[in-house]
Amino acid sequence: MGFTLVAPDQPKEACALLARSAPGEISVLAGGTDVLPDVEAGRVRPSRLLSLRRLPWRTLGWNGGSLTIGSTLPLREIEADPGVRERIPGLAQAVHAVGSLALRHRATLGGNLGRAAPTSDLLPILLTLDAVVNLVGVDASRSVPVDQFVVASRSTTLRPGELIASITIPEARPSQYVWQRVRPSNDISQVGVAAARASRPPYWRIALGGVVPRSIRLEGAERLLPAVRPLVSELEAAAALAARLAPFATDKRASEAYRRQLVGILVRRAVASISPPIVPPVGVA
C-alpha cells in the first residue's frame, strides 16, 4: 500500500500535521475499518496515515444527564456501558448494529462521523439525540450540531487541520433504533429508523438512515405525534407520511419502493416501543 504512519500524542500536534499536509497526502486513521479498505482499493492514496491511537480521546463520561464520548473510543465500549444501555438505549442499539463484534472492538464513533456515510447506523440516532460534534483545530475549537456537521454523502464541515475530539449528547432520552438488512451482521442497513422522546418540544424525534444524500430528521412526521402516548391513528399517520416523504433511492441494496414499504413499518415499531404508558384516569384502578 505504501504509506508511513505517524502517531502524535498531542491533539494540537495532530492538527498541525494535518494542516501542513497537501490534500490527499495524509489520511486520518482511527479504527481503520473504513480507511484501510479505501486505501487497499485505491480510493485514496495517502503517503501517510495520521494515527489517533495516542490521543487522549478514548473516554466516556456523564455530566448529569449529558454524555460525552471521546471520538476514538471503540464502539464496543459504548454499547457495553451500563449507563448508555439504561439511559440511552437507542444509542446502544445503533452501535450494536454496526458490523460485527470484532469490528466494533476497533471501529469508533469519530470514524463513523468522519466517514459520514448515508448508510451509517449511527447518524440517525445521533440526530434524534441532538448530538453535538466537538472539534479541535490548530488555533481554535468549536462545536457543531450533528445535523450541520454532515453536509452530504461522505462530506462534513471539517476544515483543514480539524479533528473530531468528542461527541456530546446533551440529554439522555428514551430512544430506539431499528433497521432492516439482508444479513443481520456485517451488512449495511437498507433502512434504519431512530426515534427518541425529548423533554421539550418537539417531543418526538425521528431520523432515517439509508436515505440520500444524508441521514435526516423527519420533522413533518414528528409533528403528527402528541406529547403523550400516540393514538394508533396518529402513529399510522406519522408512518404514512414518513413513507411518502423520505428521500429514498434505488441502489444495489434495495429498491426505492421496498424502502418506502419498510420505513412505515420501522417508524411504527420504533415510536411504539418508546411511547409513554397510558396514564389511567383518576379513580380507575
Partner: peptide, 13 residues
C-alpha cells in the same frame, strides 16, 4: 483478549 479483525488492523497500531 478482545476479538479483532487482523485484516483491518495495522500491526504498528
Amino acid at each position: 483478549g478482545r476479538s479483532t479483525l487482523s485484516c483491518l488492523t495495522l500491526t504498528h497500531e
